Simulated scan of single mutants.
Amino acid sequence: MSLQWALIAGFLYTEIAIVVLLLLPVISPARWQKIFRSRFLNSLSSQASLYFTVLLGFLCLFLLDAIREIRKYSGSSEPGSDPKHQHLHLDTEMQGNMRLFRAQRNFYISGFALFLCLVIRRLTTLISTQATLMAENAAALQQARSATTTARNLMTEKRGAGEEAQNNSNEVSDLKEQVKEKDENLQKLTDALDAKKKELKELHIELEKIKKNNEALVSQQTGLSREYDRLADENSKLQKIFDSTNKKSD
């Protein structure tokens, strides 16, 4: 095997090992994502498309060369060729078959190398996409859990607010009952006060009457006192006249 085909065969074996590693379930897509985003691969990612295109170009050239070699060395063994030239010499036939075998081997090596190169690119893309989807799924799940927790807290707070509102409503009802009862008591007190005011007014009117009667009695008593004093004076005068008359008769 020539050096170039030995390198392609080594590249093929490396691709097989890489495909096996990519297909192993031991390494998770997230770990592969970290490997793909390493510093070394990131330094190559800017020119990865160029490298991949050049590699595909070389593999396609080797594949075409292998096809050309197959067509070249398989023409001598076609059924329509001259039998004398086909079996001219055993060594020449064995050498042609060996070259045909090498050409076919090179065709399979280059073909599988080209195929596995495309497979590896596709696998890396799918693994990266899967890792991204897993991360987004985990983030969405965490967000959903947070939303569920928030909703539960809101429901709990709402339930507590409802119970508090119910308690407040009960307290308001009790306060209304107390206010109503106080209003009734106040109405009773107002009615009693009105009755007392009416009674006080009647007493005031009666007191005015009594005052007037007392004033009349005082006036009458004053008149009687004056009349008594006058009569007492007249009586005294008459007594003096009577005493002087008695003295003259003696």
Rank of each mutant, 00 (worst) to 15 (best):
A66E: 03
R99T: 08
T129M: 12
N106V: 01
M134N: 08
A66I: 05
K72D: 04
L114T: 11
Q86D: 13
A113V: 01
S74V: 03
D82F: 09
A103C: 08
L61G: 04
T129N: 13
Y108F: 12
R105G: 12
L123A: 09
N97M: 13
H87G: 04
G96V: 02
R68H: 12
L64T: 11
Q95K: 15
L133R: 14
F58V: 05
Q95D: 10
Q130H: 06
H85L: 11
R68S: 08
K72E: 09
Q130G: 05
F112C: 08
R68G: 09
I109M: 02
G75Q: 12
Q130E: 10
P79I: 13
S76M: 02
L114F: 09
E78S: 07
H89S: 15
R102S: 04
Q104P: 00
M134Q: 14
T92V: 14
F112R: 06
I67A: 09
G80F: 15
C60K: 06
H85S: 14
F62D: 02
V119W: 01
E93G: 03
I120D: 02
P79N: 02
G96W: 02
T132L: 09
K72C: 01
F62H: 03
F58T: 03
S81A: 05
Q95V: 14
G75D: 03
L61R: 01
K72M: 07
M98I: 12
F107Y: 11
L90Q: 12
R105T: 05
L118T: 14
N106G: 04
L90C: 08
T132W: 11
L123Y: 07
A66C: 03
T92K: 11
E93L: 08
D91C: 10
L116D: 04
L133E: 13
I127Y: 06
M98A: 15
L114C: 09
S110N: 08
I127T: 15
I67C: 08
T92Q: 10
G75T: 07
E69A: 13
E78L: 13
P79F: 10
P79Q: 05
E69Q: 11
L59G: 00
